[in-house]
Design a protein around this nucleic acid. Structure first.
Lengths: 221, 221
DNA sequence: GTGCATAATACTTTATCCATAATTATGGAA
DNA sequence: TTCCATAATTATGGATAAAGTATTATGCAC
């Protein structure tokens, strides 16, 4: 019996570690014990080490030679650097997507947007979060630029390191929804320039909310 | 005697492989024989495999599970995707750099530009190439955005896979020089908007030259 | 003669083992 | 009591070996 998707062990391990890091089960700054982890997963250290190399070049962990592996700590400066960059990139995505999308694809996007409306009204935070991700991802796919997509996804992984990032949406659910409505309208109107502008500002306003939380909680990242 | 920079073996191996790939000694599409390579370098296959994982997440090689490792083949579509993206990113870099750079840093940049002028006049292609890289890199550093920098450098690595890319500069040395002069002038005038626009177009005109060569040679990438 | 199946070979993948370097703890001296 | 040095322990990094899977070639059958 040959597997349909022949993924190597190190890839599966990398994915499991990613999930644990995103879930903040492995918090930034903590040391990753290779031996213990290998034992936990019931594998040898070799594929684990290879997985850590992959995570390191994704920026999720820091690999200090002869000193071990640590979950990356993201600073406020990093967030200040990444958010404008994401705004730029996702803005471009939106513009390209508007220009390329066929009517049927716009309708499909609209469906995702509607599930966003529904989950918001029903107050299902986690489902809203999911739909939000799906909406953004779909637009990125519509832009049809493999490299733009991969750059954005890599940066998003890094953003996920910040606990505040996932929490920030909750506090501005209504605002986020409004912004999404406007973006959707620009798509339906075929206005690429406006879609770019709106998406750009949408990302930056996410950063704004995060700054406010940051101040309230009085701690960094 | 403890080393100042304790780099792991896999990192050195990764760097050596990068150089061989960029030099097109390992051409796109070719299979990388782990055993032979490990023997050549006089190391075991473990660090070599780890190096390949790193190169894979940089996009320089394709790691097909159970099928081995191949040098990435870059398509014309990839170039069409990457160049506008680079134009966007380096344009942003230029704008940020203008806004952040102190007068002394502008003067340092000017020095690099002048060596560009000199090497061009003397017809020293390879030195011109070096200075060109230094100029772009310096602007990226002046933008002072760690993540923007790393994204650009990653994409540039991928571009280097294309042989035509390095050749394209030769055919448009004068034009490239003119564009650099204009960019330098925008820096000295402190005009961020203009610098962004010029840098953006500079990248795109590089792509244009590449398309023309492509047509003349009648082959892809 | 062509197509399919089986076997053999070769390469990837994973596990175990060893050596080296770093960190921590303990003991002695100031 | 505190600081420095030395030794021991622990973890990382590299090597080697074994096992499993994929591909290719050869042989047989239709």
């Amino acid at each position: 019996m040959t597997r349909i998707a022949p993924t190597a062990l190190y890839q599966e391990v990398a994915e499991r570690l990613r999930q644990r890091i995103f879930a903040h089960e492995l918090t930034p700054g903590t040391w990753i014990d290779e031996q213990k982890l290998a034992e936990q997963y019931g594998i040898s250290r070799t594929p684990l080490r290879e997985a850590l190399k992959v995570l390191a070049s994704e920026g999720l962990v820091d690999l200090k030679p002869r000193r071990g592996c640590y979950v990356t700590e993201i600073s406020r400066q990093d967030l200040d650097d990444i958010f404008p960059l994401m705004a730029l990139l996702e803005g471009r995505c939106a513009a390209d997507a508007v220009n390329r999308a066929k009517p049927i694809e716009i309708r499909e996007l609209k469906k995702i947007h509607e599930s966003l409306e529904n989950t918001a009204q029903e107050g299902r935070i986690d489902a809203f979060f999911e739909a939000n991700q799906a909406f953004h991802k779909r637009i990125q796919e519509l832009a049809n630029n493999r490299w733009l997509l991969s750059v954005i996804q890599d940066l998003r992984k890094v953003l996920k390191l910040s606990r505040l990032h996932s929490l920030s949406l909750e506090g501005r659910l209504q605002q986020s929804l409004d912004e999404h409505r406007a973006i959707m309208a620009a798509f339906e109107a075929g206005d690429a320039v406006k879609a770019e502008q709106l998406m750009h500002d949408h990302l930056l306003s996410g950063r704004e909310a995060l700054v406010k939380m940051d101040i309230k909680n009085g701690k960094a990242a």
